[in-house]
């Protein structure tokens, strides 16, 4: 029981990070119907920016951890958002009205570019960060097994909850959210009704990238090491999560993220760690066979 609870906590923390990345995939898919393969690498860039900011703040003598965290969080969100914007501007906007597979290929291309840019600019070796957020609580002990809830796990879940709420408000209450939903429905009609489609899509990428930056920062704090390759693996997982939950659906992305996180954690804990990805991917295939549009996705009505 205690072991189970501990895994549940770990799984939720991991799932929250996946969920944050998955939102970027699902939003972009909802609005322009493309798989933004480079999004995982935007997450990785966010993690690198966060790490460099930490190091810079340390060398500037900022030692108050909450302050440092806040600065890093905000700056990383802004700078990563610029990356998200640039990727859209260079690789996707010129292909907006063309062939569907073209932006998929540029997205894969961009993913390769980002990975290798970071590798060239910062080196291929893993980058460690000494623990920034430490400590935690022991919830209870059962025998000699203690169930721990660490501060970083609390931070992850709280940040995710806060961001999800803010995000939900943006999508449902603001003019940007309305424009986004209008573009999702019918881009041409939205344009004709005065929605600036290009700007709406750009802002979608900016928001997605900002969330990915938060995920990057949390990942960095949680695991303490990053390298240029983390984006690929996390990206595939997060995309799987988005599909799992039903692509295009924001709650679906979060739910999918949590489920993937939990499957991975529990599989590693109770079975073999090597096959945790196989478990997650097989679950995906099985779910899609029974729910062809994911758990919370709108069922696609076949228009004849």
């Amino acid at each position: 029981m205690a072991y189970f609870l501990q895994q549940l906590i770990n799984g939720i923390a991991l799932g929250s990070i996946y969920g944050l990345i998955a939102i970027g995939y699902t939003m972009v898919y909802g609005i322009i119907g493309m798989i933004n393969f480079a999004h995982g690498d935007i997450f990785m860039v966010g993690a690198f920016i966060a790490l460099i900011l930490f190091l810079a703040l340390l060398s500037l003598g900022v030692t108050m951890i909450p302050l440092a965290l806040l600065i890093v969080l905000l700056l990383a969100m802004v700078l990563t958002a610029v990356w998200g914007w640039t990727v859209e501007r260079i690789a996707y906007r010129p292909l907006r009205e063309s062939f569907r597979l073209a932006p998929l290929i540029t997205a894969i291309g961009m993913s390769i570019v980002l990975q290798n840019f970071i590798q060239v600019a910062q080196g291929a070796r893993v980058k460690p960060l000494q623990p920034v957020v430490t400590g935690g609580y022991t919830l209870f002990t059962e025998g000699d097994f203690a169930v721990n809830l660490s501060n970083i796990q609390i931070l992850i879940v709280v940040t995710t909850l806060v961001l999800m709420t803010v995000f939900w408000l943006i999508i449902t209450r603001t003019a940007l959210g309305r424009s986004q939903r209008a573009c999702e429905q019918d881009r041409l009609m939205a344009a004709l009704s005065g929605v600036n489609v290009d700007r709406t899509i750009s802002l979608t990428f900016v928001l997605g990238a900002a969330l990915a930056a938060v995920a990057g920062l949390l990942y960095l704090l949680y695991y303490g090491v990053i390298d240029f390759y983390i984006g690929f693996v996390a990206g595939i997982k997060a995309f799987t999560a988005a599909v799992f939950g039903g692509i295009g659906s924001l709650p679906g992305a979060m739910l999918g993220g949590l489920i993937i996180g939990l499957i991975e954690t529990f599989w590693s804990a109770y079975f073999t760690i090597e096959y945790k990805d196989v478990a997650a991917f097989s679950m995906l295939a099985i779910v899609l066979i029974f729910f062809p549009t994911g758990l919370l996705g709108r069922p696609e009505v076949e228009k004849v």
Binding site: I90, A91, G109, M110, V113, N116
Partner: peptide
């Protein structure tokens, strides 16, 4: 990667 993006665009 740059070539991939370039040719496609």
């Amino acid at each position: 990667g740059i070539a991939m993006v370039g040719i496609m665009v």
